[in-house]
Design a protein around this nucleic acid. Structure first.
Lengths: 225, 225
DNA sequence: TAAAATAATACTGTATACAATTCTAAAATT
DNA sequence: AATTTTAGAATTGTATACAGTATTATTTTA
């Protein structure tokens, strides 16, 4: 194992398995656990100060979410993300984000539009200050509002899951030269078209945004291609 | 509980949790468990002749798949599918099936095309014989080949999951007057456009197919609308 | 008689114990 | 020396036991 997990705090009402799941997921996303690394139940349980039961249940969930791979009787391994995976994920996201944007253009409330605008401003400030943590935070909040506005909970959760699966490597594309300002412009175009209730334009803006994100991600992984 | 589950057979190499999961899922799909019905771990375990542990893990998986709803410390209930759910699911499927059809038009092999054709013929025979079981079987096989041909495993599994979530009520739309022959015509149009590698037409055929399926399903649930 | 309080019951959440399998490594054989 | 065999250790799969909480029923009180 690379680093170590923080012990689980029991302040929450949530079941332990949820806390354990979130903790392991976070560790995978932030790189504490490397791709391909084996995750052993007893070890994880000891580190977090819980028994194997909630750890097992957490791992089952992470498997469904695509963060780990389980081989029966052999163990659990942190999923290794490949070029193929990225291609698959963005093929789907291009399509789903387009859908979400179109629905949002039809269903968003004035309050939500205001929130989007605010996030847009915050995003600009975060970029100016080069505050990476803030950037990621605002970006996440921005998309959260957008997906919420689509009024389709399943769509929201499917996209979120796909987003999370590339989170561990998204940092690289974020730091790609010029990508951040480009991202902001794309976000602005998206908000504009949604604000004017233009479904077609919103869809196209979303498609462009996702396609560009994919290209940047690909370039940042393999500059040759 | 309505009926009862068959005891788990241990002939397979699969972990018990998988067998238990499939058994419960099947029972939900075929109506052995009704929507809203409470699922109790001890009872399920006893009926299948296993302990609570694999049952719990199976339930966790079914929750992720959307077949059951868990309320912490309160229990697990068979998910109740609503008009809202159907709308959500078909909004997504319209988009994903369009994607899958487009990709299939680009990536399908001649062998797969042949298989699709064969399924098309079988479907016609099954309709002529009014063999409902066969119809469902061939329909499933048909779509399976199609999604496989998209060469996107995630897309395949997301669509399959969405399909399964309405399986329990799909029987009704199947028996809607005239829907079966309509379905076959739509399938044929889809195969034709894929065979001629026409991405646009394949997408449009898929969209039409899903939209019609939704409309029929809605009508069969609520004839007034 | 109705409502509230309390006790009993039953279920879920978590921990631990046992069984079965697989991996590791050491020893034996070719 | 290399390969196979075999014994041990470690890990996952499953079962069971215990703890905590929610529900239900009963009793008490207004």
């Amino acid at each position: 194992m690379a680093g170590h997990l923080q012990p689980i705090k029991l302040d929450s009402y949530k079941p332990l398995r949820e806390l354990v799941c979130e903790s392991i997921r976070q560790a995978i996303i932030d790189g504490t656990f490397s791709p391909g690394e084996r995750l052993m139940e007893i070890q994880l349980a000891d580190e977090m100060g819980v028994s194997r039961t909630p750890v097992r249940e957490a791992i089952r969930k992470l498997e469904l979410e695509g963060f780990v791979v389980m081989i029966p009787r052999r163990g659990t391994y942190v999923a290794d993300i490949s070029i193929r995976d990225i291609t698959e994920i963005y093929e789907i996201r291009t399509c789903l984000d387009e859908l979400a944007a179109g629905l949002a253009a039809e269903r968003i409330t004035p309050e939500e539009l205001e929130t989007l605008d605010r996030h847009l401003v915050e995003f600009g400030i975060a970029i100016a200050e080069n505050d990476m943590e803030k950037i990621v935070e605002v970006d996440t909040a921005f998309h959260e509002v957008l997906y919420m506005a689509s009024r389709n909970a399943r769509l929201h959760s499917i996209i979120n899951n796909l987003r999370e699966q590339v989170t561990s490597i998204r940092g690289r594309s974020m730091s790609y030269p010029g990508r951040l300002t480009e991202t902001m412009e794309e976000h602005r175009a998206l908000v504009d078209s949604i604000a004017s209730r233009d479904v077609e334009r919103a869809q196209s803006a979303a498609r462009v945004h996702i396609e560009n994100a994919e290209h940047t991600l690909m370039k940042s992984i393999n500059p040759v291609t």
